[in-house]
Amino acid sequence: MKIVIIGATGTIGNAVCTRLTEHHHVIKASRSSELIVDLKQPETLHNIFDQHPDVDAILCTAGRSAFGQLDSLTDEEINLGIDNKLQGQIQLVRIARRKMKEGGVIVLTTGMLAQNPNPLSSMATMINRGIEGFVEAASLDMPNMQKLHAVSPPMAKETAEKLGWQGGIPAKEIAKLYEEALTSTHQGKIFSYHRLS
């Protein structure tokens, strides 16, 4: 398969690229890759199909949102996740469903905070749940036998270590979720780590 991975330079995105490269033609996309894609600039999403009109799948491992107690978040911080992770991925689906070939696959990224909120995650939890609801509903109306899924990854061990935290799951293990979503025969599923444990 010819697969575009958005967020390929990130911890999880890089692990997904490594896992899928062995059996697929992987094209890396990010704000700094040869294929430039920035979720906060939806017009860059057209770059995918301008350069690779025959793409079989798009896996989005990117998306940013702010953390903090609700009263401490600025309007800019609140809009960061809405404009980037939520709206950016929605726009990706809107564009891809019109341009992808028959049977194409789109996989978005949500996150564990959808089901495990904490006092600092009001925006991240809202955005992740919004993505999951969007996937579940939009998948019921995908054209041309296209598939739409989302992965809800846990905290990557590598990211936790950078933050000085304990725990986390190695990114190479999280990458298996994206491979499972890519090859799934189902529609509109949310793939999370507990399903692989």
Results as ranks from 00 to 15, higher is better:
residue 61 T to I: 04
residue 57 A to W: 00
residue 46 H to W: 10
residue 52 H to D: 07
residue 59 L to K: 01
residue 89 Q to L: 05
residue 87 Q to R: 15
residue 68 G to I: 09
residue 79 N to M: 09
residue 81 G to T: 00
residue 65 S to H: 05
residue 67 F to N: 13
residue 73 L to Q: 10
residue 77 E to I: 04
residue 67 F to H: 14
residue 56 D to L: 07
residue 83 D to P: 07
residue 80 L to S: 04
residue 88 G to S: 04
residue 69 Q to G: 11
residue 48 I to H: 05
residue 49 F to S: 07
residue 52 H to T: 14
residue 71 D to H: 13
residue 57 A to C: 05
residue 67 F to M: 15
residue 75 D to I: 08
residue 68 G to W: 11
residue 72 S to C: 09
residue 80 L to I: 04
residue 82 I to Y: 07
residue 86 L to Y: 05
residue 46 H to C: 08
residue 53 P to S: 11
residue 66 A to L: 12
residue 55 V to Y: 07
residue 52 H to F: 11
residue 59 L to V: 01
residue 72 S to T: 15
residue 60 C to E: 00
residue 66 A to H: 13
residue 87 Q to V: 08
residue 81 G to P: 00
residue 53 P to G: 09
residue 70 L to I: 15
residue 88 G to I: 03
residue 51 Q to M: 11
residue 57 A to E: 04
residue 54 D to E: 15
residue 55 V to I: 14
residue 61 T to E: 02
residue 58 I to K: 06
residue 74 T to F: 05
residue 85 K to C: 01
residue 60 C to H: 03
residue 75 D to G: 05
residue 89 Q to R: 03
residue 83 D to N: 15
residue 61 T to L: 11
residue 80 L to V: 02
residue 87 Q to C: 09
residue 48 I to M: 08
residue 85 K to F: 02
residue 82 I to E: 06
residue 46 H to R: 07
residue 75 D to A: 12
residue 72 S to F: 10
residue 53 P to E: 10
residue 64 R to F: 08
residue 67 F to K: 15
residue 65 S to D: 14
residue 61 T to A: 09
residue 65 S to Q: 06
residue 70 L to M: 14
residue 61 T to S: 07
residue 59 L to A: 02
residue 65 S to M: 10
residue 71 D to E: 09
residue 58 I to S: 04
residue 79 N to P: 01
residue 57 A to H: 01
residue 87 Q to Y: 13
residue 70 L to W: 13
residue 74 T to G: 13
residue 78 I to C: 05
residue 71 D to F: 03
residue 49 F to H: 07
residue 85 K to T: 02
residue 77 E to G: 10
residue 86 L to H: 00
residue 46 H to L: 14
residue 84 N to C: 14
residue 71 D to M: 05
residue 48 I to A: 08
residue 80 L to H: 03
residue 80 L to G: 01
residue 86 L to F: 10
residue 70 L to H: 08
residue 48 I to F: 08
residue 52 H to I: 11
residue 46 H to K: 10
residue 66 A to E: 10
residue 76 E to F: 03
residue 79 N to F: 06
residue 65 S to F: 13
residue 74 T to L: 06
residue 83 D to T: 11
residue 80 L to C: 02
residue 82 I to C: 06
residue 51 Q to L: 12
residue 47 N to Q: 01
residue 50 D to S: 10
residue 64 R to E: 14
residue 46 H to S: 12
residue 55 V to N: 04
residue 67 F to I: 12
residue 85 K to D: 05
